[in-house]
Simulated scan of single mutants.
Amino acid sequence: MKNIKIKVPATIANLVCGFDILGMAINEPYDKMEVKLLKTSDIIIHHTDDFGLPVEASKNVAGIVLMKIQEHLNIKNGFELTIHKHIKPGSGLGSSAASAAGAAFAANALLGNILTKEEVVHFAMFGEELASGVRHADNIAPCIYGGITLVKSSDPIDIISLNAPALFVAAVHPQVEVKTSDARQILKKNIQLKDAITQWGNIAGLIAGIEKNDLSLIGRSLNDVIVEPVRSILIPEFETIKRKSLELGALGGGISGSGPSIFMLAEKKETAQKLAHMMKSVYDQIDIDSFVYVSDVNKTGISIEEQNF
């Protein structure tokens, strides 16, 4: 029986100003997945965590991806999937994207790599649609490609890999719930032209800074005048953490995906460690449990740990 074991990275979507178009893969936290190719058409899902995620394929972000691949390729084989989830659902660190992208990646490998990377992204996006109601690829793309990615277009899919600088990330996940669907609904439907111009400048500056490895330009461009002002009200102590992070030497940062996680970028690991300590202490002081992560950029995306073909 063909089977594969993979390691799937967490991701940080938007990178502050790049709503739905920018994303970055990080090394901590990550999920592990084991996928077997079955002779029957069944899709069997197992979870080893206590998050209470559904195991019915049509209601599971990984399951729906496998169903779409079956349907599109008209194959009779099914899949048995075991997910060891360490990226907590609802964290804003790409938990649903990890499951969806991992399922698409593994299925493609088991079927002989008959899909292009763009097609793997296409099928993984069905999982994001199930999770949030929107087919977006800002988490999916870096999870599959690694590093920092620009989603130039979702239809047709056009993904551009950027030259990720050697940066470190400090992230905190306060144990409060912010649903992606809710975080999208509160966004403004119309924006002022002056805000759009400011945002376009920040996105362009951020991409230029990444490509030129200009840390100062990256820092100056990590500013969001459209989404963050609205979403940040859902996250306790967001402004405090952002202010203290800059005081401690962070290049900048903001909300990871739709939240509630907050991330900050730093040039040195020692700075990122100080940021993580500060982040946790802020939430400890107001009796909110939190998890903190210090990581570098994952430049490879999903990796194969073992395969038996």
Rank of each mutant, 00 (worst) to 15 (best):
E306D: 13
V225C: 06
A98E: 02
T180N: 04
T271M: 04
A97K: 03
V55D: 08
I255H: 11
G205Q: 02
K36S: 14
N308L: 12
A208R: 14
V120P: 09
Q192D: 00
G252A: 05
L162R: 04
N213G: 03
E267V: 10
I233T: 15
H86P: 02
K244C: 03
N139M: 02
S153E: 12
I288P: 10
L217Y: 01
N308Q: 15
S256F: 04
A98M: 01
I6H: 11
K242N: 06
H277S: 14
E71L: 11
D287W: 09
A13G: 09
G102L: 06
D20H: 03
A204P: 00
A104I: 04
K117Q: 10
F105H: 04
A131T: 07
I210L: 00
L248C: 08
A124L: 08
A106Y: 03
M278F: 10
K39R: 15
S256N: 02
A98I: 02
K117E: 11
F263C: 01
E34N: 11
N60W: 14
V292T: 15
V120W: 14
K188I: 01
K7T: 05
K2Y: 13
K299T: 07
I191D: 00
S295H: 09
L150E: 09
N74T: 09
I186P: 06
A101W: 08
S161R: 11
A196V: 00
G90P: 09
T11W: 09
A104P: 04
M278L: 14
M67S: 11
Q192K: 02
K88M: 14
S153W: 13
Q285N: 15
I44F: 13
